[in-house]
Nucleic acid binder design. Structure first.
Lengths: 109, 109
DNA sequence: GTTCTATCCATAGATGACCTATGGATAGAA
DNA sequence: TTCTATCCATAGGTCATCTATGGATAGAAC
């Protein structure tokens, strides 16, 4: 089993895509969003996050542009594409299927 | 995301331990149990199963002995140990925590 | 009687996601 | 001016799982 602060493998891309449905964000902001939404249970390391964003860019599930933050710093803002939104749907339903199956295996009977 | 027939990484050991709470079983039987319990959604490949069983043996979470099956074939029967039962509890609660956290990230809000 | 399928064990090597470690840079607070 | 938080990104390692392979036997099918 994974350690407490680790992620569940295979769920990071899905969570990033989901986070971006709430609007464009830069990498650091995505990491904070996930951390806060999960009540500090999930911590996305930068060494996981940026490679993941590169993967998503390559697939054209997100696009990126350099902009300025409210605090006047340069940052790369990521936006969900239409394909990314479709992909999110696919990953969500696969995830649900998987979790439901594991639930059946794990139930007492 | 993982493919449909794949496992969710990090959940195999937990499912094996859970399966063994229903009594000793040989490797092949464990794989079938998981497949059936999950309504054929989860397929444990032999290349995943036997290394997993070696891990569990090393940790003394299961023990093994050679016996004969009902159909007269030699097979290695795996039994859950007390430590294995404790470990199952740990993994289950970590899993629940993780799934709950992912659920919060994935909920529309 | 032999071929095929299901049952059974196990390892080697590849893949791929994630983590650790590292490096760089700036804004604003102390 | 030093420290912390904010921001980006890559290289290298780890580890779980999969693919591919190899071996062996029981019983059914033909």
């Amino acid at each position: 089993m994974t350690k407490k602060s680790d992620l569940m493998p295979g769920t990071l891309d899905m969570m990033i895509l989901k986070t971006l449905t709430r609007g464009p964000q830069h990498g650091y902001g995505i990491a904070l969003s996930i951390k806060r939404a999960s009540d500090e249970v999930l911590t996305v390391e930068e060494g996981s996050l940026y490679p993941a964003l590169q993967r998503l860019l390559l697939q054209s599930w997100v696009k990126a542009e350099w902009r300025s933050t409210e605090t006047n710093r340069r940052a790369r803002y990521y936006t969900l594409t239409a394909a990314g939104r479709r992909q999110l749907g696919v990953e969500q339903s696969q995830f649900e299927t998987m979790i439901a199956a594991i639930g059946r295996v794990m139930q007492d009977a």
